[in-house]
Design a binder for these strands. Structure first.
Length: 283
DNA sequence: AAGTTCCCCTGTTAGC
DNA sequence: TGCTAACAGGGGAACT
């Protein structure tokens, strides 16, 4: 479940390892991984390309190459592994690892960049370079990143005032604000003292200022802790996060840290949702 | 325009 | 103990 902090950790680790590297071979064994091109064409177009620049928008990873931009979304379980070479690949566990590697990119120094995704939900798109990477087709519907300093509470309030859906559902809408997933939506609303069930149009400008401050505080804190590892998240091949130890409501059973009221679990728009009925008021 | 439902996947967990 | 059903979840398509 990589959300903005986890995607940022993955991207930073990759940039450290493969910035400037050239792709000399490409093998895609799960064709639907490629969202906008046939897999064979995808493979051909990547040959000779270099990983020049690394960007993140919401939960998307953007690799600027020479003639293309590669846009990847890890969804729930996608991972990039950087292996020293074929020997290390051959030594992988066939059931736990090899079986779930759906793409292997050979680099000019002999290393292998592998994409592993147990549930095959992740996607990659390869596009001709646009003038601005914000213009990439895969990102057309993605709103401003939650950590974008140009994002204001005023525009959130404007967008939200015509929406009757629960505020939690709106926080998960990537066209509203990008980068928040199920874990941080719960944590942000706890920090803001707002019930996830509150209809979005019941919130005023002060509420949105509050939500935006809490969003930035929590996402930044989580990034500094290495992200949240609840199930399987890891970056830099094996490194796990630490923010799961600081979660106040998400996936927690038992008493609220602040007031002792039992944390409630419910389902909002099909998503498991945790909140404190005392600390978080419905408006 | 806004909201709802279904689908994609497979490993893990809950329940009988 | 062993089986099955439910669950986890982001985003996109199709629908009302």
């Amino acid at each position: 479940m990589p959300e903005a902090p986890e995607v940022a950790k993955v991207l930073a680790a990759l940039e450290e390892e493969i910035r400037g590297a050239e792709i000399v071979s490409a093998s895609i064994t799960h064709p639907s991984l490629c969202s906008n091109l046939p897999a064979d064409e995808f493979e051909v177009q990547l040959i000779g390309e270099h990983f020049n620049e690394f960007h993140r928008l919401g939960k998307y990873l953007i690799f600027e190459m020479d003639n293309h931009d590669l846009v990847a979304h890890l969804r729930m379980e996608g991972k990039f592994l950087v292996l020293s070479g074929q020997e290390e690949f051959d030594a992988l566990d066939p059931i736990k690892d090899k079986k779930h590697i759906h793409a292997v990119f050979g680099l000019s120094d002999g290393r292998l960049l592998c994409y592993k995704d147990t549930r095959k939900f992740g996607r990659m798109g390869l596009y001709d370079k646009p003038a601005d990477w914000h213009d990439l087709p895969a990102l057309a519907k993605v709103g401003k990143d939650a950590l974008d300093q140009n994002l204001t509470a005023e525009e959130l309030e404007q967008k939200a005032k015509r929406r009757k859906i629960p505020v939690k559902t709106l926080l998960l809408d990537q066209s509203f604000m990008a980068g928040i997933g199920n874990i941080y939506a719960d944590e942000i609303l706890f920090a803001a003292g707002i019930s996830p069930l509150t209809p979005a149009d019941h919130l005023d400008l002060e509420d949105w200022k509050n939500i935006l401050v809490c969003t930035r505080m929590i996402l930044s804190r989580s990034y500094s802790m290495g992200g949240t590892t609840l199930r399987t998240f890891a970056y830099g091949n094996h490194q796990q996060g630490g923010f799961q130890n600081e979660l106040k409501v998400h996936s927690r059973k038992g008493a609220c840290d602040e007031c002792g009221t039992p944390i409630e679990q419910t389902r909002i728009n099909g998503r498991s949702t945790w909140y404190c009925p005392t600390c978080q008021k419905e408006k």
